[in-house]
């Protein structure tokens, strides 16, 4: 642009800032990385909306999976990775089931989350989940309410998992340590304190 447009009022400048999408906003490797990590053909999307229409999260939130696929195709890395909606996918895979272009939109989201995590963009509750898994082997550990319900149904209080066989927890911890996931989670959480 030859001349920058300015307003004396700072708030007005933000509100009226130009929001064109320009090719230089795009990160050329973003699509490639997303496709590689997600192992899916994001660039074949024809924006039909079947994914968002299938999404149980969409009617209850501002999460629009189709928009994330669009951002992948256009290489809008910052838009995608800094959008908090990225973390609203429940990974139910309904969109992947129904996508007429045989794309796995869920895996596109997972890939983006991977890339976001590398930039330490990740909600705290996800990091808490990492800590839970490290400690108990479960993202959602068994609790008293659940135990009581299981007993009422004639089941053992603890399911056939690390809840019952705590000796397998070190194995899980080894895996998380290998990827440095726990340390990273601890680190980010500590920074936020």
């Amino acid at each position: 642009m030859a001349k920058a447009k300015g307003y004396s009022d700072e708030n007005l400048s933000v509100r009226l800032a130009d929001r064109y999408y320009r090719t230089e906003d795009a990160s050329p490797d973003f699509l490639k990385n997303v496709e590689k990590i997600g192992m899916t053909i994001a660039h074949m999307c024809y924006q039909c909306g079947t994914c968002t229409g299938s999404c149980p999260s969409a009617p209850r939130s501002s999460y629009r999976i189709r928009k994330f696929v669009r951002r992948a195709v256009l290489g809008l890395e910052n838009d995608a990775l800094t959008d908090p909606d990225l973390w609203l996918c429940t990974t139910c895979y309904s969109c992947t089931d129904r996508c007429p272009r045989d794309i796995a939109p869920t895996d596109i989201i997972m890939a983006m989350r991977n890339l976001a995590f590398k930039r330490e963009i990740v909600p705290r509750n996800f990091l808490n989940t990492v800590q839970f898994i490290y400690k108990t082997g479960h993202g959602v550990p068994n609790n008293d309410v659940n135990r009581a319900a299981r007993v009422r149904l004639g089941l053992e209080a603890e399911p056939e998992t690390t809840a019952k066989y705590a000796e397998f927890i070190p194995g899980i911890q080894k895996i998380l340590d290998h990827y440095g996931l726990k340390d990273k989670a601890d680190e980010i959480l500590a920074e936020g304190q």
């Binding site: 909306g49 079947t50 969409a58 189709r66 129904r98």
Partner: peptide, 20 residues
Amino acid sequence: GRVAKIEEDPITKNPHVLTE
């Protein structure tokens, strides 16, 4: 929007079209 799903109201038998 391409139709993601159709659900039927079991009483009225009205189809609900879900899409974006």
